[in-house]
Structure formats: structure tokens, C-alpha cells
């Protein structure tokens, strides 16, 4: 397979989804800027102390030490990397990009592409690269939003989040979204309709998020915690430097590789 053909496929796919990808990246980057703006307002009005005082002691204890982290300039700025809606949005971008092969089966586009000397693995590789790339670009846009916000808006005297923490958060968000993108790719390798693959993984994402939430807050369910990929992105822990970063990223990377291998294996054997 000539790299030029893979690039041709990749650019075609990127072009088809570019508006969606660009819009989500722009919204999430703007959200990061907005968070810096809100944090700056809190900082200049000295509202963080008030915010801490408003949280009841019981709630503080139940949420752990990380919860109070939000009541600081740096904490509020980094919250944009593990806010549930942000996390789910980045994941859905990756899943959407990764489920393109199911759409191509649905619309008969493989009758054009794979009637030519294109190996099937090139299709999976293209979608994998696309999914990893667009989620990377989305998270990159978020980091750029944070940096731009801090540079342009942050008031003097505000304690910025440590760059390494921000990068760790971004890496976790990225790796988590890659794991779900790989799940989307695997689902697309089985499905005949994009809706089936995308919808299935989207529902699974929400269920796994709830599983992690329940396991974190309800002791009898705690043993289920490792089965949710969200367990490996403890946002507060990463933000305050207490999470086992390498371990969590390693688990998510392994999951990504395993699911991508399933996709390659299945797509090679299926009817299109």
C-alpha cells in the first residue's frame, strides 16, 4: 500500500467530517478560555474563599481533598479537562471519526474504494489515524485555549496551574478518548450501519461513566471500578498530582491497542 493512497483516503475522510471536528474543537477551546475568564473573575473578586466556605464540611469530606481544588484559580482552570460534558464530547468526536467504516458499508462507498487495489487494513488504519488525530487536535485546541486564556486574561497574582499537570490532564483525556475511539472502530468493523456502531458505543460510554460514578460513591459497587475506562482518568487526582499517571495511561493505551487489533482482525474477515 502506497502511503500516498492512505493519505488520499485520510484527507477524504477528514474533509467529510472537517466541519464537525472543527466546530467541536472550537467550542471546547472556547470553553477553556471561558473557564479562565470565570476563574479570573473569582480571583479578582476574592470569591474563592467564599466558595470554599459555602461547601459543607460533609460534602468536602465525601468528595475528598480534590473537591476543594476547584475553589482555586488553578483548579477551576483545569476543571475543563475533566468536566463530564467535555470528556464525553471529546470521546464522541473520536467515536464519530472511528465509526466511518460502518457508514461506508451502509452507503456502499467501499464499492468504489475497495474495488481498487486498497487493502482492507488501510481502511482501518485510515480511520484509526483519523480518530486519533482529530481527538489529538481537539485536545490540542483545548490546551491552546487554556494557554491563550491564561496569557491574555489571567489577573496578576493568580497562581497558574502547573504546565505538567495540564499536560497530564490532556494526556489522560486524550488516551481515554482514544480507548473509546478504538471501541468505535471495533464496533464499526462489525456493524453495517454507522448509527449502530456510533449509537452502541455512545450508550456504552454513558453506562461506563455511570458505572464509574456509582463505583466511586457506593462502596458495595467499588469492586466494579476497574471495569470502567473512566476509572483510569481520575480528574481530581491527576489535577492535584496524586493519581498513578503512568499506570492509568498504560491501561488506557493497552485497551486502545487491544480494541484496534479487534477492529483490524474483524474487518479483514467480514463481508462488506
Amino acid at each position: 500500500m502506497k502511503p500516498a493512497r492512505l493519505l488520499t483516503l485520510l484527507l477524504r475522510s477528514l474533509s467529510r467530517g472537517s466541519r464537525v471536528f472543527a466546530a467541536v474543537a472550537a467550542i471546547l477551546a472556547a470553553f477553556q478560555v471561558l473557564l479562565v475568564l470565570i476563574a479570573s473573575t473569582f480571583q479578582t473578586t476574592r470569591s474563592f474563599d467564599l466558595l470554599t466556605a459555602l461547601v459543607p464540611l460533609g460534602v468536602q469530606q465525601s468528595l475528598g481533598p480534590g473537591a476543594l481544588m476547584l475553589a482555586s484559580f488553578a483548579g477551576m482552570v483545569t476543571f475543563g479537562y475533566f468536566h463530564p460534558i467535555v470528556v464525553l464530547a471529546v470521546i464522541q468526536v473520536g467515536v464519530y471519526a472511528a465509526t466511518e467504516p460502518a457508514g461506508e458499508v451502509e452507503w456502499g462507498l467501499f464499492d468504489l474504494e475497495l474495488a481498487r487495489p486498497i487493502p482492507r487494513r488501510a481502511i482501518v488504519m485510515r480511520s484509526l489515524v483519523l480518530a486519533l488525530g482529530v481527538t489529538g487536535a481537539t485536545v490540542g485546541a483545548m490546551v491552546a485555549g487554556t494557554w491563550a486564556g491564561l496569557t491574555l486574561i489571567a489577573p496578576a497574582g493568580a497562581v497558574w496551574p502547573a504546565p505538567l499537570r495540564v499536560l497530564n490532564l490532556a494526556a489522560h483525556l486524550l488516551m481515554l478518548s482514544w480507548a473509546f475511539a478504538a471501541a468505535g472502530l471495533a464496533a464499526a468493523a462489525f456493524a453495517r450501519r454507522r448509527g449502530e456502531a456510533f449509537g452502541g458505543v455512545a450508550v456504552a460510554t454513558v453506562l461506563l461513566y455511570l458505572l464509574n460514578f456509582v463505583a466511586d460513591t457506593w462502596t458495595p459497587a467499588a469492586r466494579l471500578r476497574p471495569y470502567s475506562p473512566f476509572h483510569y482518568y481520575p480528574g481530581f487526582g491527576v489535577a492535584n498530582g496524586t493519581a498513578p499517571v503512568a499506570h492509568d495511561l498504560g491501561v488506557l493505551a493497552a485497551l486502545t491497542c487491544a480494541l484496534a487489533l479487534v477492529a483490524f482482525w474483524r474487518f479483514e474477515r467480514r463481508d462488506l
Binding site: A4, R5, T8, L9, R12, S15, R16, W107, G108, L109, D111, L112, E113, A115, R116, P117, I118
Partner: peptide
């Protein structure tokens, strides 16, 4: 193909060019 799939957003020349680049 019998049921001819197309990329609706492509122009005719871009379509031929795309398929030409994928060919042997």
C-alpha cells in the same frame, strides 16, 4: 457498481480525481 455510491459533496472532477488516485 450497480447502485452507484457517490460522495455528494464532491464535484465531478474531484470525484474522478479521487478515484484516479486510488487506482493502480
Amino acid at each position: 457498481p450497480g447502485e452507484m455510491p457517490v460522495y455528494p459533496e464532491l464535484s465531478g472532477s474531484a470525484y474522478l480525481s479521487y478515484l484516479g488516485r486510488l487506482g493502480a
